[in-house]
Write a protein that binds this DNA or RNA. Structure first.
Lengths: 271, 271
DNA sequence: CGCCTACTTGAATTCATTCAAACGCCGTGG
DNA sequence: CCACGGCGTTTGAATGAATTCAAGTAGGCG
């Protein structure tokens, strides 16, 4: 029953569709006016490309602008003195590369591409302008960064308390929901262009062990993989294996109270 | 040479002293006017107490206000279905309990006390007011939350890529610097009221293994412990063991560019 | 004094790593 | 067309770091 739906599906919560993945994601937080959506589209219009396996920004550098990832996959990672590497998070379409820009002197980690990517550079000025003039978008971006923080905490839980199977299962579930939130799933299928080495570097495991876990999952018909497309054949059991609960992604939006507050700000500006 | 300096020492960077630990911390980011400092002192004035080992907020709850921790130690943690527990971060004086309040519907983790604590509750309103009227403080708080995020990423690196010794050493170094930043160290000595079980729940290790690592550190004269006071006798070697580099704490403040920007906002408001 | 919690230590076990080798796929170039 | 590498994956066997189980010690407190 899970194999392949024919159409892209909407995130299960409530959110309308949107061509812009960032818009799709932010709609999980709160509704946005047409004007807000247009603003986001303008923001996403500029385009720059990077090939696979290059750094967009490296540790120690001072980033000059934020990047909105429009297509492809990237990662935040850090190289270890002993030659190892730890991948902290994956960036998928709709994710912003670095809000840190504004406040921190230099990057404490690197951002590198996994596949070729298309990004929209966003200057400091236009972001500041956005903060000043679009309270609802600003709030949604803030929410989005809270969500990212929550994902970091969950990763800590994974690495600290789950065994290899649980870690892999958890990551797969998280990526499924994240892709759903930006409209990039097809049933339980999504693009996963990661090597087993990269999975290992993410989950604190060796590539060979990742291999064994994936093999087991395939044999138990929990997943199937074909030319970088990952299908979760039994999400129920994967979630159970991982102790996964999607609440931490906060896809349900915010409270009416908060919405009202930002509507108030919005109204204020109009005058 | 490391055992016990006679006075509280200042964080090595540049920051002036301050009775208020939050102020001390924020001064690492940028200078604050007397008026700003007074504002922070007013915020920190209200007082509420919690005993040790209770939840200030539990997973699933909707927090009603932010808490500024003034004294004692607390933790963000999450209980696992199998009875286990993962501690995500420790909260020390100067830390704010939950900025998430405003945007997320409910807590995805709990905050519990470790020791008895004194906190200053801060209402949503006074925080919103602060954001509107105190750009420099707001920026500093934002910086502080970037710092927290960086610490989460570092924890991921620890759990993913460091062995037990490295993890313990890393945590000790981090806590030393964090305590320094709020003026709560005495040379290389600081209060560490954690049980070995709590350390284990933080670092993804069993208490017995924590015990063995600490024993080794004591035997190698890297640390000494006495009635909950932790002395790092050989910070150099601990940092080497952990591959520790304090840059991720961003204690060096921000760029002049950013400072100028917020000074501009400040000036704007004055009119 | 007795109890509870935290700490300590030893021995057996296990999950994941390390080392090693082979396989398949794919693009390049002879 | 096939040979050649390179990279990612797959599999086996030996090793090892940390866990589990178990039992004993030490310290704080009613």
């Amino acid at each position: 029953m899970a194999c392949a739906a024919e159409h892209r599906d909407q995130p299960s919560a409530t959110p309308p569709p949107a061509g812009n993945p960032l818009t799709s994601k932010l709609l999980h937080f709160a509704p946005l006016s047409n004007s807000d959506r247009q603003h986001l589209d303008r923001l996403a219009a500029p385009e720059e490309r990077f090939p696979a396996s290059v750094d967009i920004i490296a540790e120690g550098m001072v980033p000059r602008s934020v990047f909105l990832l429009k297509e492809g996959m990237a990662m935040r990672y850090r190289n270890m003195p002993d030659g190892g590497r730890q991948i902290m998070t994956f960036l998928i379409p709709g994710d912003l590369c670095d809000m840190h820009v504004f406040l921190l002197k230099e990057m404490d980690h690197s951002i590198g591409t996994i596949t070729p990517v298309r990004v929209a550079p966003i200057s400091r000025e236009s972001l500041m302008d956005l903060f000043a003039s679009r309270p609802r978008i600003s709030a949604a971006l803030w929410w989005s960064s809270m969500q990212e923080e929550a994902m970091l905490r969950e990763r800590i839980v994974s690495l600290g308390r789950r065994d290899a199977r649980g870690r892999v299962a958890y990551l797969l579930c998280e990526l499924l929901w994240r892709h759903r939130a930006v409209g990039l799933t097809n049933g339980e299928v999504f693009r996963l262009p990661l090597t087993q080495t990269e999975l290992g570097d993410t989950l604190g495991l060796t590539p060979v062990h990742i291999n064994r876990v994936l093999k087991e999952f395939r044999q138990r018909s929990l997943i199937s993989m074909d030319r970088r497309m990952m299908s979760l054949l039994n999400v129920e059991e994967l979630q159970a294996l991982a102790g996964f609960n999607k609440d931490y992604l906060h896809l349900g939006g915010t409270s009416p109270e908060v919405t009202r507050y930002f509507d108030g700000l919005e109204a204020n500006l109009k005058r």
